[in-house]
Design a binder for these strands. Structure first.
Lengths: 204, 204
DNA sequence: TCTCCTTACATACCGACTGTCGGTTCAAAA
DNA sequence: TTTTGAACCGACAGTCGGTATGTAAGGAGA
């Protein structure tokens, strides 16, 4: 079982890749399985062999995206030690990653309505939301936030960041938008959890 | 032109009512025009006479919902004078209104993916987002927030409130969830724009 | 009152799409 | 060599959104 298994894996990944592109470009509703079949030159039977249906295919695309993004975020954050600085860096990195139209359309716009808000939330818990909670927990341990607010603040903060990413991506002058967006996020964080590392006045 | 016009208006409103219920219960995708026709006992031709198609019907439902909600919000806020207090009251009222599953599914979850984020944003600008901006503008005039952050903060704040509403509605113990949610929103506002009316220490 | 136009509604039908099902192929295990 | 089962194939059924064409009836003008 190697040649066949390998072939199967390749088909599966090819489907995922193409589907990601189509879902990102046209949205879930306006992307037909037919189009995926045509662009991949894979047969109907093959697709339904690997993925139980359109929604399952979308979910697979979604999870693969989440994994990619999380990997990159970990790379940004892993060497930082100060909780507030970690939070700041993570938030800014996330806003930049979420500016990608693929991430936006699939992960932020379509996902909640396609797989349902609850399942989307459960997925996010494993990725971006989970990281935000961890970061805020450390900030709370540092005395910057009462522990009972960690959960709710993580949700609200992440929602705010997602919204900023959508705003930035939609603006016409993207350079200015990024500058203003980053400034707004930094101001928000400053007001939420105070200035950066205890030492520097740094912040804004 | 009275009997006919009245009959048409009635058909239209009946369609809107039933469609609102079905969209809220099953979501846009899993609500078929067929089902709307069956439940209203209206003919295909009649529906397509009043609404250009499924998406147009959804948009009409959406706009009617937005108007309802905005009307209620105005009622809460109109007699208040202090900017921070107005913001606080408006935010809390919105969170409570947005706890309605109909509002959630149609307005918060499905709308962006069905009519597109841009158009959804433009609609919100006329309603909730517009009100938030106005409130924050006044807060800025009172010296609690630099004017350049009004726009971005309005977006982020509204997104955070929406998320809280979704969280609250999904929790099992809704009494506790509302208490915790409201507390979190109040803490958030306190950190964003400071304590309430200059006079009282009031706040939290 | 008769005619004509417009609005509201009715129905048959089309094309597109999703998902199913009975097959076939072929690498690898037995 | 035989058997097995994963990977794949493609015809088909059923549903759905949307259209085309037709009809009934209220109201305006002669």
């Amino acid at each position: 079982m190697n040649k066949k298994a390998e072939r199967g894996r390749a088909t599966r990944e090819h489907l995922l890749e193409v589907a990601t592109g189509l879902f990102a470009e046209h949205g879930y509703e306006d992307t037909s399985i037919e189009a995926v079949l045509q662009e991949t030159a894979v047969s109907r039977g093959a697709l339904y062999h690997h993925f139980g249906g359109k929604e399952v295919l979308f979910t697979a695309v979604l999870e693969s995206l989440e994994r990619d993004v999380t990997e990159q975020l970990i790379g940004v954050v892993e060497r930082l030690t100060d909780p507030v600085e970690t939070l700041r860096a993570g938030c800014l990195a996330w806003v930049r990653l979420a500016a990608d139209p693929v991430v936006q359309r699939i992960l932020l716009i379509d996902a909640p309505s396609v797989i349902g808000w609850e399942r989307w939330r459960a997925l996010e818990e494993k990725y971006a939301l989970g990281m935000t909670k961890e970061a805020l927990r450390l900030v709370a341990d540092a005395g910057r936030l009462p522990a009972e607010f960690v959960d709710a603040f993580a949700h609200m903060l992440l929602a705010a960041l997602n919204e900023m990413a959508l705003m930035i991506a939609r603006s016409e002058d993207s350079d200015a938008a990024i500058r203003e967006g980053v400034a707004a996020v930094e101001e928000l964080l400053h007001r939420l959890v105070g200035p950066g590392p205890a030492s520097g006045a740094g912040g804004r």
